[in-house]
Design a protein around this nucleic acid. Structure first.
Lengths: 238, 238
DNA sequence: AACTAAACTGACTGGTCAGTCATTAAGAAA
DNA sequence: TTTCTTAATGACTGACCAGTCAGTTTAGTT
């Protein structure tokens, strides 16, 4: 059975320039299919989604899917990887840091970008799939843990460490501090995606919740005895 | 078609004393079936679980399930409600509060019980189902939001408020403070359930992580200027 | 012991859906 | 124009599984 190479599909948004194979329509069937898969799997889960629906959404016959992916599970896996990678890339653009700022300022900037990422459709779907289905796909789970959770924590941890050495923040294990911020933001981002069910969240805007989290977090990091601190005047009143 | 009343199944652990109907084996078929359903749905999700497997696990023929539940979806719904209720009840026993303690002490005690609850199998499964499947069951989602999330937050909020008026804690909106603690604990409890994938969590014990969270949280609540505070000597060194 | 009512069983059915493959269509090359 | 290669199609198949129901078992009643 002849079947095209699919190993490059991890980043389906990049058209495969080296491949001069002929194709009838647009140019990137795999990306079309993965996008449709994203929506259907995201809505119904692995077992619940139907390949007929994915095909229809992609504007393609069911058989075409099997030219690019050996089976449903492989399509699911490719979709998770592709979506995760796309999400990371979009996140990276959002968290660009300025060179010489206070750690607090860096944290605020990171917080804003990270929050925007967490509230994006892409992340919300990935998150749901991770918690719901990646049980059965340890390699994908590890991939997500390394590339999303651990990566995010490294960014935060580095800033916290710098803040500690600068005397802005109290002494704290950077990894722990990072875990605290990521759990605060991730969980509340998930809840915000289910706003309707939580009366208190329904009233607040996304940005207000994000700022509440940041202020709360910073108040836990600031030294309890603000004697010789450097950038202490910037603290807002709660 | 005659079919027994199922409306009382929300709390399947309580045998129905009023009902003197004859049954062959133990006495509580519904609870058997719901327990099997908990395991199968918890592992595979609504679409992925098979009624044959649930029946086999319950030690019952498939037809028997249909004597107690009209269809698969109804069984799923009953299972979610029953599990949630059972989880709440077990949680309530864990968070009994002493009358006259400092707010900090109350918070620590609540934190220990709440954490034990969050790390239980029951909660972990409910949590997964909520995030994965309750999309399609708004009423169950609301039930969970009210009875688990909001209820937990009310408990926390009341303690925080007392701590603020006693001068132990800095001024903070109780609802917000409660949301912070519940997001910290819930997210990290979920991660602990996936220990293997997170190198930093793999090293620590459950209790250590719980204590890290509590210390971090308390440090965010304590007044920044510890002038006339009452119970300040108890703060441990990080 | 005979009867009855209700609990229980599991083979069966019909619909659904992942995966297949013979056929068609679209270029490219000659 | 004809030929050749390969992308694409969608009707088809076979496995699977939710839901059914005619028959069986149990236990209470007379």
């Amino acid at each position: 059975m002849t079947r095209v190479d699919v190993s490059h599909l991890d980043t389906p948004t990049l058209p495969d320039a080296a491949d001069a194979r002929r194709r009838r329509t647009p140019e990137e069937r795999p990306a079309q299919i993965l996008d449709a898969a994203f929506h259907e799997f995201g809505e119904r889960g692995l077992a619940g989604a139907r390949l007929d629906d994915i095909a229809r959404r992609a504007g393609v016959a069911k058989g075409t899917i099997y030219l690019y992916f050996p089976n449903k599970e492989a399509l699911f896996r490719a979709m998770v990887r592709a979506t995760t990678i796309a999400a990371i890339e979009s996140a990276e653009q959002l968290v660009e840091q300025e060179g010489r700022e206070s750690a607090e300022m860096q944290l605020r900037r990171l917080g804003v970008g990270w929050w925007t990422f967490l509230r994006s459709d892409r992340f919300q779907v990935v998150q749901r799939l991770v918690l719901a289905e990646l049980h059965h796909f340890p390699d994908l789970m590890q991939f997500y843990a390394d590339e999303v959770v651990a990566r995010g924590r490294r960014l935060i941890g580095a800033i916290v460490e710098r803040g500690t050495t600068r005397g802005e923040f109290r002494p704290i294990v950077p990894g722990t501090a990072a875990r605290m911020l990521s759990s605060l933001t991730m969980m509340q981002a998930i809840w915000c995606g289910r706003r309707q069910y939580f009366s208190d969240l329904a009233l607040a805007t996304d940005d207000e919740i994000r700022d509440e989290i940041l202020e709360f977090y910073l108040s836990a990091l600031r030294p309890n005895l603000p004697v010789g601190s450097t950038t202490d005047a910037s603290r807002p009143t709660p």
